[in-house]
Nucleic acid binder design. Structure first.
Lengths: 219, 219
DNA sequence: CGACATGTTGAACCTCATCAACCGACGTGG
DNA sequence: CCACGTCGGTTGATGAGGTTCAACATGTCG
């Protein structure tokens, strides 16, 4: 994105803090803004009429939050932790997107990535065991942590961005099963639990093996 | 899409028949074309290293098949029945998309629809029971059949586009469970099985109820 | 210190997967 | 023409993986 666009973007933007648990975008009401995630984690959730919930997407910085060309979302966006976001009014942003085809193109690419991620997760939800699900989730986070804290690439350590309940909703499990599988992975030595939220992975390859990944993802 | 575009599109297109079971696009090799689905059903599948399979998307006419701005797919596209498709060479199509922003915009919109569908399916895969899954799938097909055979909108009848094995792979179940749930729905009177592939739904509302839909979808 | 939220562990139960037999339709070859 | 194998689908018996319910542990905040 060139300077001109960045200037115009920041002109219409403003920062906002959001406390954990707050709904950012709701199912029925129209989405009136776009936003860039500066810090924190956003979960996209869907719920059945009787209250069963499923997380259908996670957003980490610097992910983008919004709904292009549609009046409203078919899901909720909720702060899974305290957030900082950078908000753009929807109409102004879309005017800008009309001016700069590059911008729309970038949004398109991001949407394709989200689609790929969603489909990858469908395989996990439909066909993997509880142990594989948990290991897969941890493997995902471990790889993410390598991108930022670029360490030696064989081990990793990171903080869980979600509570047990949210992890369960992400993996299509119950909190009890998540907890049990975590202790299983701990006792089998695949991970170390420093505290409830902090995790160490001595061997990424070992973790990837438990996750049942097609191919150990290179980084 | 205006006439000019349609003319140029058809100039680079050619028809092709594809027998059931054939792989159209593969995981690793680059996707070299786009295609419009004229008749038949295409399944998008992902597979774990040990052979468990999950269908991550279904395409019906007049859906569009292809991968914008990416060299290859992270999944397979396979003919779930005999097909007729209308093929566009990738480079020619992308040149055209560059000329007509409208075209890229349309592709974007379709991708958003696919993303919504994928996320809806994540809720099904992660949180619904076998009975709800099967009922939900049938409800989906029933609504689709109303769009074409526009009948009285309270009942429906249609042909299953998938084998039991494919239905199982779509719902994250086994063929046995799919079969059992179908006979359950039959004996409880929610559906009628005319033959293995032909289904009648006396009451869409009753089916939607079993499917555990948030809201009975109006049509 | 007690109340509440979050997480862990245990025991019982249930849904769904697994394994196996069976059925009907179809195509092939003797 | 009929035996035969194959394929797609159904049905039954059994068992395992996860859910459910409940108790307990830990941590935090008033």
């Amino acid at each position: 994105m060139d300077d001109d666009q960045l200037v115009k973007l920041s002109a219409i933007a403003h920062r906002r803090k959001v406390p954990s648990g707050q709904i950012i975008m709701s199912d029925q009401e129209p989405a009136s803004f776009f936003a860039n995630l500066i810090s924190g984690t956003v979960k996209l959730t869907k719920t059945t009429s009787d209250g069963r919930q499923q997380i259908v997407g996670l957003l980490f910085p610097p992910d983008f939050l919004g709904r292009s060309f549609r009046p409203s979302n078919p899901y909720f966006a909720e702060a899974a932790s305290d957030l900082e976001i950078c908000v753009f009014p929807k109409d102004a942003f879309e005017r800008l997107a009309g001016e700069y085809p590059e911008l729309e193109h970038r949004l398109f690419e991001r949407t394709l990535d989200e689609l790929d991620a969603a489909r990858e997760w469908m395989l996990l939800l439909g066909r993997k065991t509880a142990e594989e699900k948990v290991a897969d989730f941890l493997y995902l986070l471990a790889r993410r942590s390598l991108l930022t804290h670029c360490a030696d690439h064989a081990t990793a350590s990171f903080e869980l961005p979600l509570s047990r309940a949210d992890i369960a909703d992400y993996l299509g499990l119950t909190i009890e099963t998540v907890s049990r599988q975590l202790t299983r992975l701990k006792t089998s030595g695949v991970i170390r639990l420093i505290n409830n939220r902090l995790i160490e992975v001595p061997s990424l390859d070992a973790l990837s093996l438990v996750a049942g990944q097609d191919s150990p993802h290179p980084y």
